[in-house]
Design a protein around this nucleic acid. Structure first.
Lengths: 202, 202, 202, 202
DNA sequence: AATGAATGAGCGTTCATTCAT
DNA sequence: AATGAATGAACGCTCATTCAT
């Protein structure tokens, strides 16, 4: 199998230009002003459309935020799977994913996730949503399945393995960004190793 | 040293009845409707006081949320340190703390923490705040320090050790409560062991 | 030079219908309830628009009152200069202005000035504002300058001459309207003569 | 007859200490923060009494302001009549009154009048109020009556004479204080003379 | 399809007034 | 008589949503 391609984004070209601009504007404003600080008027202005136009593409504000959540989620899934191929050794794949998460949360081009605003976005609770997420993070699932199959990983559900190892990356990045605690490069390596230790069969 | 006593709450009896009711109402509503869904009028109604009364005890909405944050934080610190004494073996202390977090997040009397709304409460960024938090989680720090001193734990900052091991408990509990993934008793034991593995010197 | 034309009002036709209605409503309510008795809701209701609509045309309540002040000021300047031409004898010009003020304050279509609420409207203190006022009352200034030039009037600053002679008209009108004292036609003639005496070189 | 004595204030000693403190506090705050900026709570705090206490002495806020109006009015009447005795020549009496008004409005000890806040105080419109005012300004009336009796002044009602001559002092002082126009000492003398000219039989 | 003026319910907050103590 | 905590209506203002164009 090859390096993961952004197939999740194939729906994007179908998306009208205006709709994309609205979503991007929302993301930018959310990162800049936080959840409280944005209004539909602001989004419209930033996107360069009329207020009413937003309602052609989104049912209401909640829907806009829902769709932004999905939009970002697919971006995240894409980013996590970057530079991963099936023939890489398990630990290297793990390390790459861990750093993908760290970099994404730490870099400037994903300002929303940095600020912890993403978690606050209203999520649809429905079943399809869960299935979608499952599909998006197929690469992660595959990693865990393979690790368990060869007796390397603990025999736990992927959800739990994910919390034990990868969630740590996001959690640490959040603290790093918030300024709560500055993580050095050496810290980073140790944290990756420790996350690996957590899921390893000892 | 003895079992941790709820000394952090000695200020609570001094707190006026009304103020406590307002804080509790806010917590409940926050859990129910989330950060963006509550208004001062709702809080007042839920607390059974007049709108203006809130402003007798809190400067403004931000102050109310700040104080709620502090209030919950001290509750959390208290809960985490429950049933911990210095002469318990390290692993037992760790296990107890891990479960303290799990139970707290899982039980009904701490509805806010369950929903992950707590993290998003506005925090005061000042230095004193950080010191206070440090003091509150003294038991956690002591555990990590002792573990490192006897060569049992990895030589990492307590903040990182905390993310690697205890944060896992909260994260898992959140998913459990949200219905994202149901954690069985066996899962729980495995997760505790895995969290322990994460910080252990291998 | 010809009779003063209402050139100051050329901007009015440009003004949106809603904005004009809001200003008129504000003026009416100000006259009826005074400065402290009006709310934005009342203005909206009186103007027949929604509350939010006011904020489309005015930044905030202060801005509304400022603009009303300017609006009325230009109306006053216009009214004062009515039926004045440069070739009229000085005393006739004075008499006309004096009566212009009296009539304006006494008639029904300028309810605000009647009640002395106008003076208390918040004013912008900036320099441009002062220049604007100067320009608006050019006719008044010209009268005083000519009077001084030909040795008829006392050698005093126009501001003082204005207080001594024309302010009297406004002051008397205010008392007349307030019912404090009813001014007869004979009184009026005497008052005009006395105002004239005040600035005359004796 | 002797120098005017503060007979109008004989009711003051009867006034309770608390009531006086409340009135003084109100005056001070009115001068400092203007009409908009004071609340009953502020008045109570400034006066050093409980909020509820105000309502023992004043029916409501309107009543407090009414009574303050009366209080200040009697102060003004007292000030105007200062240093006036019946045997002084008319013009000297006039000049003294004119300057009494000017000084009062210009000095620091009557901060309220300076700011034009006094005029805005709600006034009772009733007949008794008018009689009271009449009585308070007896000295002014007497001046005008004597002037008319000896053929010196124009045969006009005292109200009109007052507007023509003394009101000028207040009006000028207002502009002086507001910074609209700075009045020099020479201006002052000229203005007094002009005010005198206004009411004089020519 | 797109606009943006208009809407009005609802926000956070204030404050004149009351009343149990 | 005096207190001050409590009240809740009303404030200035915002903003998600609608609809005539």
């Amino acid at each position: 199998m090859n390096i993961h391609s952004p197939s999740l984004f194939t729906k994007l070209p179908v998306m009208s230009d205006k709709k994309k601009r609205i979503l991007q504007a929302t993301e930018k404003l959310l990162a800049e002003y936080g959840f409280h600080g944005i209004s539909m008027q602001m989004v419209a202005k930033e996107a360069g459309v009329a207020t009413g136009t937003i309602y052609r593409y989104f049912e209401d504000k909640d829907d806009l935020l829902h769709q932004l959540h999905d939009h970002i989620l697919s971006y995240v899934a894409h980013k996590i799977s970057q530079n991963i191929s099936d023939d890489m050794p398990l630990q290297q794949r793990f390390r790459t994913m861990w750093l993908n998460i760290w970099n994404m949360a730490t870099e400037d081009d994903a300002p929303l996730i940095n600020r912890g605003q993403f978690e606050n976005l209203p999520r649809r609770k429905c079943h399809e949503q869960r299935l979608l997420e499952k599909k998006m993070f197929a690469q992660v699932d595959q990693l865990f399945e393979e690790g368990k199959a060869c007796g390397l990983f603990k025999e736990l559900d992927n959800e739990i393995l994910s919390v034990l190892s990868l969630e740590t990356s996001a959690c640490l990045a959040r603290k790093h960004i918030n300024g709560v605690y500055k993580v050095s490069d050496a810290d980073l390596e140790s944290a990756i190793q420790a996350s690996w230790d957590a899921i390893l069969q000892h």
